[in-house]
Design a protein around this nucleic acid. Structure first.
Lengths: 116, 116
DNA sequence: TCGACATTTCGACAACTATCGAATTGATTA
DNA sequence: TAATCAATTCGATAGTTGTCGAAATGTCGA
C-alpha cells in the first residue's frame, strides 16, 4: 500500500526543482544519447560498454553518468570494478506527463497568429 | 491532406537537434515559468503582462522570449508596439512522446539494483 | 516632429558546464 | 604485496548562458 502509493506519487508529482534538474540533465546531447543507450539496452548497460560506444573520455563519461544519477534518471549498480547503468522507471513518464499537462492547459492559438 | 500529414509528422518527429534545442529552452526555470504562464493564459499573453508578473528586467524577458521562439515553442504576434505570446501547438506533445518512447524502450530494472 | 512607451540590442560580467589529461581510488588476481 | 584494470576525482580550459543597465529601435499619438 505504502509502496504502491509512493510509486504513484512519484509518477505524477514533480517539484519545480526536480523538473529543472531533469531538464538540465537531458539538455546535453551527449547525455541524452547516453540515456538512450541505457534505455534501449535489454539489461543494465555496462559502463565499459558505454565507453566503447561513445567517443568521449572516461572522465567525461563519469561526469555525465554522475549528472544523470544525481538528477535521478538512472541507477548505478556496482559489481566489483564494474558499474552497470539502468533507467530509473517512471521518471521520464512523470516529466512527459508534466509537459503534456502544459500542452493541455493552453488554449488553441488563433489561426491568424503571425509567426514572423 | 498535405497539411494533415504535415501536422502529424510534426507531432511525432523530432530531430536530435530540435530535441536538444527544446530541452535547453525548457531547462531554465525562469523560462519554464514564462512558458507556463503563456500556456495557462486563456488567450495570447501580452508581453507587458509577462513583464509585470515576473521580477526580471525587460532585457532578460526579451532574451527569454527569443529563446522560446527560436526553439519553436512559442509564437510571437506583433501588434504595433505590443507583442503577444502564445504556445505553439503540438511541440510539447512531440517532446513528451519522445520521452515516453524512451521510457517504453527500457527494460524493467531488477529489484536488486543498488542505488548507492 | 517630438515625446512617450514597448521592446530589442549591445556589451559586460559572473556563473555554469562540457571536456580533457593526469592523478587517485578501489577492486581483483597472481 | 604488486600489478593490472575500471572508474572517479581534480584542476584547468574554453565555451555557454542568465542577468542587467544603457543605448537603440520601432510604434503611436499629439
Amino acid at each position: 500500500m505504502t509502496t504502491a502509493l509512493k510509486n504513484t506519487a512519484k509518477a505524477t508529482r514533480l517539484s519545480n526543482a526536480r523538473r529543472t534538474a531533469l531538464l538540465k540533465a537531458l539538455a546535453d546531447p551527449r547525455r541524452f544519447e547516453l540515456l538512450e543507450r541505457i534505455a534501449r539496452n535489454n539489461c543494465p548497460l555496462g559502463c565499459a560498454q558505454a565507453r566503447s560506444a561513445m567517443p568521449i573520455s572516461p572522465a567525461t563519461l563519469s561526469h555525465h553518468i554522475k549528472e544523470l544519477e544525481t538528477a535521478g534518471l538512472i541507477d548505478v549498480r556496482r559489481e566489483g570494478k564494474f558499474h552497470f547503468l539502468s533507467l530509473r522507471p517512471g521518471v521520464l513518464d512523470a516529466l512527459a506527463s508534466k509537459l503534456k499537462l502544459l500542452e493541455t492547459a493552453s488554449c488553441p492559438a488563433p489561426p491568424a497568429l503571425a509567426r514572423k
